[in-house]
């Protein structure tokens, strides 16, 4: 038998004999290579909900793009609230409010007419100081993507929220935005009016709808039903989250729905 063939057999045998833990480490290393060390370089935005953070590998990655789709058109305010809560959490580790990086909200005129303009007193009650926000209204849908990319590239911006209604979002567009976000670690959030089956380079994809709150002399703290339908780092799942603006954190009262083991296209998840 040839010498080299012998050597490779020996190597394979050694590999087979290795404990399973090594395989896990190997997988982790591969995942790290795949997901890009870039995303990790800026840390995470934790939800503060243990099961959810575990699924995400610590929280929502900064320096990446995340898609938040409203279940239906009428759930856009709920999706907005979810996105703004994340925007708040992304800046919350800095105690000094003035030192927090800016939040840029970019939307088409049409979206603002249909779903309402950001309202300062309401944002403040939700937890996000209006001083941090810069709103950008654009006339054409393609300008949303342009403005998002510009904002994500800026080192002074912490969170970019883009309401993308009309523009077609393909792999190229989302990839561009992801690369832009990786530059300075801004959290990119894309608000969609409805789940989009199109392929996307976003790190996570959420479908968010309103959920009935716990009533006590009127409406209680807002609740949303958040469904994680794409996650590059772990398994998927579905949670009912309550945003507590006074304590400025998410809580969950229901157990997570057993996570779907396979990646389902967004459309299947809605049906």
């Amino acid at each position: 038998m040839d010498q080299s063939v012998m050597a490779s057999i020996v190597r394979l045998k050694a590999a087979a004999a290795r404990p399973a833990g090594d395989l896990g480490a190997l997988r982790q290393a591969i995942r790290k290579l795949e997901a890009g060390a870039l995303e990790d370089a800026f840390g995470m935005v934790p939800f503060g909900v243990p099961g959810l953070d575990a699924a995400l590998g610590g929280g929502l990655a900064r320096g990446a793009l995340h898609e938040i789709a409203a279940t239906r058109e009428s759930d856009i305010p709920a999706a907005t609230g979810f996105g703004l809560a994340l925007a708040f959490l992304a800046g919350s580790e800095q105690a000094d409010r003035a030192a927090q990086r800016a939040v840029i909200w970019i939307a088409e005129d049409m979206a603002l007419t249909e779903s309402g303009l950001p309202y300062g007193p309401g944002l403040d009650a939700h937890g996000l100081p209006p001083e941090r926000l810069i709103t950008v209204a654009v006339a054409h849908s393609r300008d949303v993507l342009w403005a998002m990319e510009e904002a994500l590239r800026s080192s002074a911006v912490g969170v970019v929220i883009g309401e993308v209604r009309g523009a077609r979002l393909d792999l190229v567009a989302t990839r561009r935005l992801t690369l832009a976000a990786a530059g300075h670690g801004a959290l990119g959030l894309m608000l969609r009016a409805a789940p989009d089956p199109e392929a996307s380079a976003a790190a996570t994809r959420w479908i968010v709808g309103a959920a009935p709150s716990v009533l006590a002399h009127g409406p209680g703290p807002p609740r949303v039903h958040a469904q994680l339908t794409r996650n590059r780092r772990g398994h998927l799942g579905s949670w009912t989250l309550e945003w507590n603006a006074d304590h400025e954190r998410f809580t969950t009262h229901s157990q997570p729905v057993p996570a779907a083991s396979v990646h389902r296209p967004a459309r299947a998840a809605v049906a």
């Binding site: 007419t113 309402g116 303009l117 950001p118 309202y119 309401g122 009650a125």
Partner: peptide, 9 residues
Amino acid sequence: VPRPLRLLA
């Protein structure tokens, strides 16, 4: 009463 997040024009 808390104000809404989005206000119609």
